[in-house]
């Protein structure tokens, strides 16, 4: 079973890297980009075959390691 985790910065947390990407897009002529937020996608290949159990485990992984919940949100997709 595969799972995909999206880790994104919480609202209100400044994202200097996203800002740099936004500036660069402007330089390339892409006008009208009001904001860019950069995050991570983490794909997991799991031995678990039960979707609910897999999701519970991946949420624990997010809480313990994959996301820093001080500044990041996460979303878990079971594929």
């Amino acid at each position: 079973m595969k799972a995909r985790v999206h880790v994104t910065l919480k609202n209100g947390v400044l994202d200097p890297q996203g800002e740099a990407v936004r500036h660069s897009l402007g330089t390339l002529g892409f006008d009208g980009v009001n904001g860019v937020r950069q995050g991570k996608v983490i794909e997991l290949d799991l031995a678990e075959t039960d979707a609910d159990a897999a999701k519970t485990t991946v949420i624990q992984m997010c809480e313990k390691l994959l996301a820093n919940t001080v500044i990041e949100n996460y979303a878990v997709e079971i594929l």
Partner: peptide, 11 residues
Amino acid sequence: LPGVLMRNAGL
């Protein structure tokens, strides 16, 4: 310790 250390504002 509380808080987090993010990428430098000047990158």
